[in-house]
């Protein structure tokens, strides 16, 4: 029945467009599949972004967000990978999670299953410690870890996510070893750090922005300081080349017609320049960093290689 309505709408649109020389994309509602429940970070990103994409795709465009939660986004993204590449099914895409899942389990997609449209959010990692841990700077942290390998516990939201990759980068860079404590989600991990049950925590900046009074924030893993926590120094400022974060973007199935892809990418680029869009995203705790097309693909490749190397040397499950 749903399909019927859609078809009817499409036919209707075609009839309407018959006057014009050629039917132009989009001529029917576009569906964006979100692999998480409504209200989550990725869902909020999609629901905040899509009105602006509607605006820049032109008059009469309609985008419908559809939640297909389950298996940390796997169910949704697998559905996207298997959809028709006609530009009417898009999906949200999380990095490095979506790539890490192609390694640690059998996934119904790989990095070639998609046409990369735009990454929208880049939420950089931060390292925090509890107030009573006695660790207040990056030097303290490294010194403590060197003195007693594995004695320092690090709380994070899961294994094989961006938090985990940051720690792996840190361990490699400083030749240290920590004990990983993967909680279920960042909120319980954050409470555990605040209560001093684990010494260190790795989060995304948006997750601790409101808690800077209760935690020591050692540094932020981004090239420049974040608007969410401007007082926090970057790791580069402190002599550590540590860049990592959680990214959320939008992809389409592989083989999207070039003109459709170009139109969509263009809409994302225009949205990125829209101050209203930046404000809406900041209000919902989403640090914006729009990267489109080939650059987005390169970003994905880079993260996939890192994840693959990590998986082959130190598998996490």
């Amino acid at each position: 029945m749903h399909k019927f309505v859609k078809t009817a709408a499409a036919i209707g649109a075609l009839v309407l467009a018959a006057g014009a020389a050629q039917a132009e994309y989009p001529e029917k509602p576009i569906e964006v599949i979100v692999g998480y429940s409504a209200g989550g970070g990725t869902d909020v990103m999609a629901r905040t972004t899509m009105p602006f994409i509607e605006k820049y795709l032109g008059e009469g465009t309609s985008i419908v967000v559809k939640n297909m939660p389950g298996a940390s986004g796997q169910i949704g993204i697998t559905e996207v990978a298997g959809s028709d590449a006609d530009g009417y099914t898009l999906g949200t895409f999380n990095l490095p999670g979506m790539m890490a899942r192609t390694l640690d389990r059998e996934a119904g997609y790989d990095r070639d299953s998609f046409t990369y449209l735009a990454n929208v959010v880049n939420d950089p990692n931060v390292i925090v410690t509890s107030k009573d841990s006695g660790i207040e700077t990056v030097e303290d942290l490294i010194a403590a870890a060197k003195e007693n390998p594995f004695a320092i516990t690090v709380g994070m939201s899961s294994l094989g996510g961006d938090d985990h990759f940051l720690l792996i980068k840190l361990q490699k860079l400083t030749e240290t070893d920590f004990t990983i404590v993967p909680f279920k989600g960042s909120a319980p991990a954050r409470t555990a750090v605040m209560g001093g049950h684990v010494a260190v925590g790795i989060f995304n900046v948006s997750e601790i922005a409101k808690f800077q009074g209760e935690l020591n924030v050692l540094g932020i893993a981004q090239a420049e300081r974040s608007d969410f926590a401007p007082e926090v120094a970057t790791f580069r400022e402190q002599g550590l080349d540590l860049i990592n974060g959680s990214m959320r973007g939008v992809v389409a199935p592989a083989g999207l017609p070039e003109d459709v892809a170009a139109k969509l990418r263009d809409a994302f680029e225009k949205a990125a320049q829209d101050p209203e869009f930046i404000k809406a995203m900041t209000d919902t705790a989403n640090p914006v960093e729009v990267v489109t097309g080939e650059d987005f693909r390169a970003l994905t490749d880079g993260l996939f290689d890192l994840a693959k190397e990590t998986w082959e040397t130190t598998p996490w499950n």
Binding site: P69, Q74, R105, L159, N317
Partner: peptide, 16 residues
């Protein structure tokens, strides 16, 4: 902790 499947028999729907 590890995120590997237990008793899901390959069904993604059971993963959570």
């Amino acid at each position: 902790i590890y995120g590997n499947d237990r008793f899901t028999f390959g069904a993604l729907e059971l993963l959570d």
